[in-house]
Design a protein around this nucleic acid. Sequence first.
DNA 1: ATAAAGGCCACCC
DNA 2: GGGTGGCCTTTAT
Length: 166
Amino acid sequence: MTKSSIYYGIFNSDDYGPILLGLCEEKIAFLGLTDAPREMRSHYKTNPFIHNIEKTRPFFEALFKEKPLKTDFFFTGTKFQHDVWKALEGIPRGETRSYSDVARAIGRPRAVRAVGTAIGHNPISLLIPCHRVLYSNGAIGNYRWGSALKKKLLDYEKRPISTVVQ
DNA sequence: ATAAAGGCCACCC
DNA sequence: GGGTGGCCTTTAT
């Protein structure tokens, strides 16, 4: 059985720089703040990558609408990672949690460090809001695309009205 | 099978 | 403030 292709496009967001968006079977399979398709390799080891702006553009544009569709995700990953990522979806815009909050939320209060690692492997940045998870001491913490970008995202989310990702 | 490496945290100075 | 040991999953030997 052959693997489904990943159709990808690289776009530019005014505020956050390049955004790489990957589709698999018409669902969002990857979203990252990068212009490097190889960033998708660890998630989709053997799928063919096909550059296709036309296919991916509507999904990119939807990101900046009022209600971007949050449901159509194509997921890889282990059960543990799914549990973690699913917990992240429940963190509303403008709020934050600590890594240990998330660990508690999935019923694994002591797996804090593993939670951090799993969050770092979140394949769908922004829509699965991994940037809303901070150190328990309030520090910004790390981010796959750089702590500076994480901080920027959070600063934007403090605005009452915004056109950024919901 | 085993080891090493993580987007952590509570605890100790 | 800065180390350090423990915790748990994933990935690489």
